[in-house]
């Protein structure tokens, strides 16, 4: 199928992009990142933007930087670049693990880190990772840059806290230091299908037990959700198979979630999967 007509601009700096965006106030203008979600929507004529602002040639929006206590991943860094980044692999391996499972290789060559976050599809793999790692999003607004924790960034289905004139610059991923293990458990019907449920887990191990854990869930609501009740129960759970302590802790994974119904799963099944996959994700993260 074929997209409807739109205007197209390709700024070369973020400031220029922001200016265009502000001038377009009122028009339906969309930022074009890698286009791997937006272009199919345009082709199916599910979206009719008046104009696209292509962020693809803004050098300052690309790359991964190691910055003291965190890693900064610029918004237009492609999934492929993220997966291959030595800094990401060493300092925030959960991001690499989950990003490697986004779509397929060709899509990862075009799709971007920031595009996935800003698209805010609760079935996407990266938003849950952002929550689990307490990423902080850096946003350019009319007043300058502001930062927003992941917990406040994802507002609703396909909706973020980004205002109409704002551009996502990237995210700070806190370095968690020694002793942490990670896993992203994705459950889907075919390799390139969206996650029915996904679980991002980060686990700190001390002396054979879990001392701290972070768990966030993909596709268990209109936004990614943090499984705080599981996290509260994880400290003290033995890393090796104990007497079902981990299973017990994971059993609350779906508490307070409102998972969707779609072609592949109804809510009760998703809740069940969240529990089973949380146990598996934590176990693998702790291994």
């Amino acid at each position: 199928m074929i997209p409807a007509s739109f205007e197209y601009v390709r700024p070369s700096t973020v400031e220029e992009a922001a200016q265009i965006l502000r001038n377009a106030a009122g028009d339906d203008v969309k930022l074009l990142a890698g286009g791997q979600s937006l272009l199919p929507l345009l082709r199916l004529r599910l979206a009719y933007p008046a104009a696209l602002i292509d962020l693809g040639r803004i050098d300052e929006l690309r790359g991964v930087r190691d910055e003291a206590d965190h890693v900064f991943i610029a918004a237009m860094t492609t999934h492929d670049e993220v997966v291959k980044s030595a800094v990401v692999q060493e300092q925030c391996p959960l991001v690499a693990l989950a990003t490697a499972q986004v779509a397929d290789p060709a899509v990862r060559h075009r799709g971007t880190f920031g595009g996935s976050m800003a698209h805010a599809d609760p079935a996407g793999d990266l938003p849950a990772v952002a929550l689990a790692l307490d990423m902080e999003f850096t946003i350019l607004s009319a007043e300058g840059t502001r930062t927003l924790p992941a917990s406040e960034f994802f507002v609703d289905y396909l909706e973020t806290a980004l205002g109409p004139g704002e551009i996502l610059l990237g995210a700070k991923v806190p370095k968690l230091g020694a002793g942490w293990g990670f896993h992203y458990e994705k459950f889907h019907r075919t390799a390139q299908a969206w996650a029915i449920v996904g679980v991002a887990a980060a686990v700190k191990r001390e002396n054979g037990t879990i001392s701290e854990g972070r768990v966030a869930l993909t596709n268990m609501g209109s936004t990614p959700v943090r499984a705080f009740s599981v996290e509260r129960r994880l400290p003290g759970v033995p890393v090796a198979d104990g007497n079902g302590e981990l299973r017990e802790a994971a059993s609350t994974a779906a508490n307070d979630t409102e998972p969707p119904t779609d072609l592949h799963a109804r809510p009760d099944y998703r809740r069940h999967l969240a529990v089973v996959l949380t146990e598996r994700a934590v176990r693998k993260a702790a291994a």
């Binding site: 199916l44 019907r189 075919t190 390799a191 299908a193 969206w194 072609l263």
Partner: peptide, 28 residues
């Protein structure tokens, strides 16, 4: 294991794209 054309109760086809109608890949 994978494929089914699904109509909703109004007779709309829900599996209109390859994102919904799941054809197995080499990985599956």
């Amino acid at each position: 294991l994978y494929e089914e054309a699904v109509y909703d109760s109004d007779g709309n086809l829900l599996t209109t794209t390859m994102a919904d109608y799941l054809i197995p890949s080499a990985a599956d």
